[in-house]
Computed example of a mutant assay.
Amino acid sequence: MTKFNGLGMHLGNLSRLSSAKSRSISAENKTGAPGKGGMATEGTGAVAARDLGQGWKISPSIEVDCEETVTLADINTGGAIQQIWITKMGPKNRDLILRMYWDDQEYPSVEVPLGDFFCCGLEQYAHVNSIPVSVNPGLAFNCFWEMPFRKNARITLENRDPLQKAVIYYQINYTETEVGDDCAYFHAQFRRTNPVPYKEVYTLLDGVEGQGQYIGTYMTWGVNNSGWWGEGEIKFFIDEDDEFPTICGTGTEDYFLGSYNFDIGTAVPGNPKSYTEYTTAYAGMPEVQRPDGTYRSQQRFGLYRWHIPDPVRFENKLKVTMQALGWRDFGNWGGDTNMRRYLPLQDDISSVAFWYQTLPAVKFPDLPDRDYMEVN
C-alpha cells in the first residue's frame, strides 16, 4: 500500500496511520518546534499569571503596532497548513492585511484583508458555517483550506491603522510531511471597485498564469440603486477563451446557490420577510446590512460560494467577471413582462477569489490604500 502522507483528510481516512508530524504555531510557540509550547516567561498574559509562573498562559496573544507588519508563521520544511484560528482586538478588519508566501516566492500568493478572507468584510460579526470557513461567536475566524508547500511557508499580518495597535490571538495548525507532485499552491486575491463604471463588468480575477483550479468566491456588495440588484451573470474565461466564456451563470443569486432575490416572501405567499440570511456547506449570504432610516442609507450584502465539489479547472489562464445588473422601473410593470429592461448598476463591489495553481506566484495588483478599502 502507498505510504499515506496525512493530507486530504476526511472521515474516510481518519483511521489511516501516517508518519506526518503534527505541529502548531501560536503566541505560545512561535516556531512550532516540538516540545517548545507554553515556555514563555513574558507576554500579554504575564501579569495575570504572576501568581502561577511559567506554563500558565503567559503569552496567549501578540501586539502589532501601528503600521507594523509581523510574521505569524515561518516554516522551513515541507508540509501543509491544515487549519487557522485567529481573533483580534483593535483595528477594523480591513486595516489588517493577511499575506502568505510559498517556497521562497518574492510575491505573496495570498493578500487579503483579514475579515474578507474569513467572509466578514462588512466589519460586523456574522456567523458563517461552511466547510472551509467558519466564523463563531464572538469574533472567531477559522479556515480549513489545505495549503501545501514543499520548502517553506511564511504568513504575515500588517496593521495599516496609524493610531491603534492590534492584539492578535492565533493558532496555525500544520503538518510536516511529503507533498505529492500533483499538489498546487493555495492563492487568494482581494479586489474592490467603488463604484463599478456604468455598463462595465466587475473583475474578480485576471492575470492568472499557470495550471490550477478555482475553488471559491467571497463578495461584498453595496447597492446604490433602488430595486433588485442581482441579475448579473458570473463568467469564467478559461485558457483560450476570448470574447465569450466557457462557463456563464444565470444570475448573481443563482451563483451563490439562492433564488428569487434571496426573498422568502417571494417564494412563500403571505410571508413578509425579505433578504434571508443563510449559511451552508458550500454557499451562503451571512451578511445583510439593512438601511436604518437615518445614517445607514444603503443596503450591503456579504456572500460566499465554494467550488469544492465542482472546481473550475484551467490549464494556463483564468479570468472571472461578474455583471452588476438590476431592473429599470422595478415593481411598475403592471404584469407586462414586455415592460422589463435591465439596468446596469454602479455599485460598490469587493471580492476575494480563491484558487490553487502552480508557481511561480505572479505579482497581484497593488492593494488600494486604507481609505479606499474602508466600508462606509
Rank of each mutant, 00 (worst) to 15 (best):
F186V: 03
K199H: 10
N338P: 00
K317N: 15
C119P: 02
P291N: 08
A353Y: 00
G249I: 07
K30N: 10
A140M: 07
R290C: 07
Q289F: 03
R313T: 04
S351K: 00
A283Y: 14
F117M: 13
R94C: 04
Q83N: 13
F141A: 00
R341D: 05
T193F: 08
C119Q: 08
L205T: 05
Y295W: 15
R290H: 05
E233G: 07
T294Y: 09
H127R: 07
L7C: 06
T217H: 12
N194E: 13
I349M: 10
E42W: 12
S15L: 10
V112W: 00
G45H: 06
E209Y: 04
G216C: 14
L205K: 10
D348C: 00
Q82W: 02
F186W: 15
S134E: 11
S61G: 02
P286C: 03
V223E: 12
G302L: 03
I238Y: 15
R154W: 13
L14C: 01
L52C: 13
S61T: 13
T276K: 05
T358H: 12
G53R: 08
Y342N: 08
A27L: 14
S351P: 04
T337V: 12
Y295E: 14
F237T: 02
Y295H: 06
P113A: 01
Q211Y: 08
A20H: 01
Q54T: 09
T220M: 06
S134R: 09
K30A: 05
I234T: 05
Q211P: 00
V167M: 15
P291R: 02
T44N: 02
V179S: 11
Y304H: 09
K3Q: 11
P91K: 09
V312G: 02
Q289H: 07
N142C: 03
E123P: 00
Y278S: 09
N93I: 00
P269L: 09
G284L: 00
P311G: 14
V110L: 04
E178L: 05
W228K: 13
G270S: 01
V362C: 13
S350Q: 03
P197V: 05
R340F: 06
N225G: 14
G37A: 15
I62V: 14
V110E: 11
V320Q: 10
D292L: 02
I234P: 04
S24P: 01
A73L: 11
F237W: 07
T2N: 11
T2M: 13
N136T: 12
G331N: 10
G78R: 14
D241H: 06
R313E: 12
D51I: 09
G55W: 08
W306E: 07
S18A: 11
R192S: 08
T87E: 15
M285N: 01
Y198R: 07
K235Y: 04
T279F: 02
E63W: 09
M373R: 00
K317I: 00
D103Y: 14
Y101N: 05
V352L: 02
Y170D: 10
K199R: 15
A184H: 08
E209A: 02
G115Q: 03
D182G: 01
Q54N: 11
I264R: 04
K319H: 13
